[in-house]
Design a protein around this nucleic acid. Structure first.
Lengths: 335, 335
DNA sequence: TAAAGTTACGAAATCGTTTTAGATATTTAA
DNA sequence: TTAAATATCTAAAACGATTTCGTAACTTTA
């Protein structure tokens, strides 16, 4: 490969000058700078990333922790889409990304980051109570998290509170008063949604019976199918069910269909996420679309800002609003 | 960070000896080797990847080209699952992965690989006629491709020919004789499936009318819905439709439902891929499950073999068989 | 016992950059 | 005219590893 040395030889200057010219240092004359650019262009010079990293201690590599406990990580559209937004924004800023989820026990996440010398790390999808994740969050490596906030660290959240509020208002205005909510396992996301749900109900002067609020499992149609069945078996079943996410809503839809009920004529349902599939279901699912691309992009920008200006950047949490996708799975309740 | 120098100082030996001990060179006594291991363990020494890369010209980093033209790449479960298998196997072998799909025009894929010094590259999802992809394939960088074969390069293919044959046989044995096939856009995958389809039909002594074989679009429910409608409008409509993939089959299912027909009582359908969703549809979709994890893993192993033993490794194409997932979307045809 | 062979180690070069601390030539100010 | 300031450049030292070759000490062989 052609190195700075080759360029310097051809241009008749020292390697120091070449380096400085290429990096825009002020003490290089216009003439030599131009010559150096020309030659390195023509010889297709590419700086050696390893050498540069060794010297500067900067790799322009961002670590990504993307662990799917339930084997649904990279194949979970929500997280994949966030990752794609992150990757794209990072690359626009000259950063590449490297996965740091080692599965051999030889290195912790933090050790992996150190080993690879990443400039910062994004925790996109992980178990936030995992000691290794905590270790990472406590290190002085720049960190950004998605949908979770570590104290004093950058974070990007989807606005679950607003999202569920919008969804609730929408179905309420459609006339529903018996609204059930199957939520995911306890987490900050679930918490925000529950708060939003109850607040919106309160606001509307609606009292939600405890039997209408059930804990399901994210991304698990089976559990949601079962709970949907139990809800329908209530003496006074709900007229509308909100699911933890679009995919798990499929389970509920099946249970409903199998009982010979129709959506939305007999019962209304709504999902959450706004994945591709939601638009293609029959009927199209009313859902809250989370702006995953925006979230990933915001995470990348915040992380990079922290990397470039560690002393002058305050850790902050940005909240990305969702958007109601009006499908046809919610209509006025039967009289 | 603690470096080899620190270890050498503590152990009272030279850095050369430390390096050799850590890398298992033969000319280090058992005693010093043990001491060095102990100390570096205790001081949590991690080799500096950049320094090592600079010296050895090996990064233990694999490039991954994963481009989603149609914005469905990272969010397309098939490719995501292959990638996950690849990543996992690579990491087990001490390799990390870096995306090389630059979206700024400043570097070609190959240049990006050179810049990052990756040891090899996997082309998981890309447009194989893109000049930049060709350039990559022609370079002397070790390359492995998924579902496409570059002459003289490693490749991993899903056995589409066998898969579609199995699927055909299955529906044929269920009694279907009017079998339609909506395939994807022209590509080696489509080609293999078409050959398999026609061969299987021939084998069965079945003549497939041209009107039954239609070109749709992978991963696009809308086009498949339209074509399904046209198939159903034929004077002699098929009793079974094979779709290009599970996701696009959704479009067909909707069209069928909207006409008041039921699956599988009135018409049978089958998908391809075996993504999570296929099991959760109502009825569960009969499909060919592609062993994506196996494919990704095989790709990683082949690539690494090529990297470690360039002179003694022959480029080869391995074919990973699929597996019929029997759902409930295919039954005997109506009389 | 002398020559040859082994074993265990270290000095130093090297990979391709960046960066600091001069050095030289040129220009400006006094 | 001379000192000071400025502009442009370079030598050389890093960064943290690997690797070649040499050497000293010790063992074996004849």
């Amino acid at each position: 490969m052609v190195s700075i040395k080759d360029i310097s030889a051809i241009c008749g200057v020292s390697t120091a000058t070449v380096s400085k010219a290429l990096n825009g240092a002020p003490d290089v004359s216009e003439a030599t700078r131009e010559k150096i650019f020309q030659v390195s262009e023509q010889m297709k010079y590419r700086p050696n990333a390893a050498a540069r990293a060794l010297k500067t201690n900067r790799t322009y590599n961002l670590g990504v922790l993307f662990k799917d406990e339930a084997e649904s990580g990279l194949t979970h559209e929500y997280f994949s889409a966030v990752l794609e937004g992150f990757r794209s924004e990072a690359e626009s800023n000259g950063f590449d990304i490297t996965f740091i989820n080692t599965n051999n026990a030889s290195m912790s996440y933090l050790e992996h980051c150190v080993y690879r010398n990443v400039d910062g790390v994004a925790i996109v999808c992980a178990n936030f109570s995992d000691p290794q994740v905590l270790e990472l969050s406590k290190s002085n490596l720049p960190v950004v998290t998605i949908d979770y906030v570590f104290n004093g660290k950058m974070a990007v959240l989807s606005d679950n509170l607003q999202g569920i509020t919008d969804l609730f208002s929408y179905v309420y205005e459609k006339g529903h008063r018996r609204i059930a909510f199957i939520h995911g396992a306890p987490s900050s996301v679930t918490e925000a949604r529950l708060v939003g749900f109850y607040r919106a109900a309160e606001q509307a002067g609606l009292d939600i019976p405890d039997a209408y609020v059930r804990e399901g499992v994210f991304h698990d149609p089976a559990s949601c199918a079962r709970i949907t069945g139990e809800l329908l078996d209530l003496p006074e079943p709900p007229t509308c069910i909100l699911f933890p996410d679009d995919f798990s809503a499929l389970g509920g839809l099946n249970e409903i269909n199998q009982r010979g009920l129709r959506v939305p004529e007999d019962i209304s349902v709504a999902g959450y996420d706004g994945i591709h599939m939601s638009k293609v279901l029959d009927p199209p699912l009313t859902t809250i679309h989370q702006k995953t691309g925006t979230m990933g992009s915001a995470a990348a920008l915040q992380l990079i800002e922290m990397i470039e200006h560690p002393r002058t950047t305050l850790a902050r949490t940005s909240v990305v609003g969702g958007e109601l996708w009006e499908g046809q799975s919610v209509s006025a309740p039967k009289k």
